[in-house]
Simulated scan of single mutants.
Amino acid sequence: MSEVTLTGELVCASSSEAEVVERMLPQHVLLTRAEPGCLHFEVTRRGSSLVWDVTERFDNEDAFRAHQERVAESAWGVEIALIRRDYTVTGLTAE
């Protein structure tokens, strides 16, 4: 299996959404970086904007999909479910 990479943006619509991201992001980053197969995980706010740049690398598709499943059921996943995400993922097999 090949490496899977996700790049893109997390785009908040309001300062209240941004506050949720700021509050929840440190724990999300800590948990993700500890996952098996996580090679790189970075979420960085663009200055004082409502946009975060997201870069993820997992060593294979199974690790990436396990991450996605964990996140969907996590406090982070629930809290940011309605925040816009514009991501591109490479390295996945066709579904």
Score class of each variant (00 low, 15 high):
residue 34 A to S: 13
residue 23 R to N: 10
residue 46 R to I: 07
residue 39 L to F: 02
residue 11 V to L: 14
residue 31 L to H: 12
residue 50 L to I: 12
residue 45 R to S: 05
residue 34 A to N: 12
residue 51 V to E: 08
residue 33 R to H: 04
residue 54 V to I: 15
residue 33 R to T: 12
residue 12 C to T: 07
residue 48 S to C: 08
residue 15 S to Y: 05
residue 22 E to C: 09
residue 38 C to E: 03
residue 31 L to M: 11
residue 50 L to C: 03
residue 7 T to P: 01
residue 61 E to T: 04
residue 32 T to N: 05
residue 14 S to E: 10
residue 38 C to T: 10
residue 31 L to F: 05
residue 37 G to P: 14
residue 48 S to L: 13
residue 62 D to W: 04
residue 60 N to D: 15
residue 33 R to K: 15
residue 41 F to W: 09
residue 47 G to A: 11
residue 25 L to N: 13
residue 41 F to D: 01
residue 33 R to I: 05
residue 43 V to N: 08
residue 25 L to W: 05
residue 54 V to A: 04
residue 41 F to G: 00
residue 17 E to F: 08
residue 13 A to I: 02
residue 13 A to F: 13
residue 30 L to V: 06
residue 13 A to Y: 10
residue 34 A to H: 06
residue 46 R to F: 05
residue 15 S to W: 06
residue 44 T to W: 00
residue 54 V to Y: 03
residue 21 V to Q: 07
residue 32 T to G: 06
residue 38 C to R: 03
residue 25 L to A: 10
residue 23 R to Y: 10
residue 35 E to K: 08
residue 42 E to K: 09
residue 50 L to V: 07
residue 45 R to V: 02
residue 41 F to E: 00
residue 43 V to H: 02
residue 39 L to W: 01
residue 20 V to S: 11
residue 61 E to D: 06
residue 8 G to K: 07
residue 42 E to G: 04
residue 55 T to F: 02
residue 10 L to R: 11
residue 9 E to V: 01
residue 57 R to E: 06
residue 26 P to Y: 04
residue 15 S to L: 10
residue 36 P to Q: 14
residue 9 E to W: 11
residue 40 H to Q: 14
residue 39 L to N: 09
residue 56 E to K: 00
residue 57 R to L: 05
residue 36 P to T: 13
residue 20 V to Y: 03
residue 16 S to C: 03
residue 53 D to V: 11
residue 47 G to Q: 12
residue 10 L to P: 06
residue 11 V to Q: 12
residue 12 C to W: 09
residue 14 S to N: 07
residue 19 E to D: 15
residue 9 E to Q: 15
residue 47 G to H: 11
residue 40 H to W: 08
residue 18 A to T: 11
residue 47 G to T: 13
residue 37 G to H: 07
residue 34 A to L: 12
residue 35 E to L: 08
residue 15 S to Q: 10
residue 8 G to D: 11
residue 58 F to Y: 15
residue 54 V to S: 07
residue 39 L to R: 13
residue 43 V to W: 01
residue 11 V to T: 11
residue 35 E to C: 08
residue 12 C to Q: 09
residue 8 G to V: 03
residue 48 S to A: 14
residue 29 V to W: 00
residue 33 R to N: 12
residue 24 M to H: 15
residue 16 S to R: 10
residue 20 V to R: 09
residue 15 S to D: 14
residue 29 V to T: 14
residue 28 H to P: 01
residue 31 L to Q: 14
residue 44 T to P: 00
residue 8 G to Y: 03
residue 51 V to G: 04
residue 53 D to F: 01
residue 7 T to W: 00
residue 57 R to I: 09
residue 54 V to K: 03
residue 45 R to G: 05
residue 10 L to I: 13
residue 43 V to D: 09
residue 57 R to W: 00
residue 23 R to W: 03
residue 58 F to Q: 02
residue 56 E to Y: 00
residue 51 V to W: 03
residue 24 M to R: 14
residue 7 T to M: 09
residue 29 V to Y: 01
residue 21 V to E: 07
residue 36 P to W: 02
residue 53 D to N: 15
residue 52 W to V: 03
residue 43 V to I: 15
residue 38 C to M: 12
residue 27 Q to I: 02
residue 45 R to F: 03
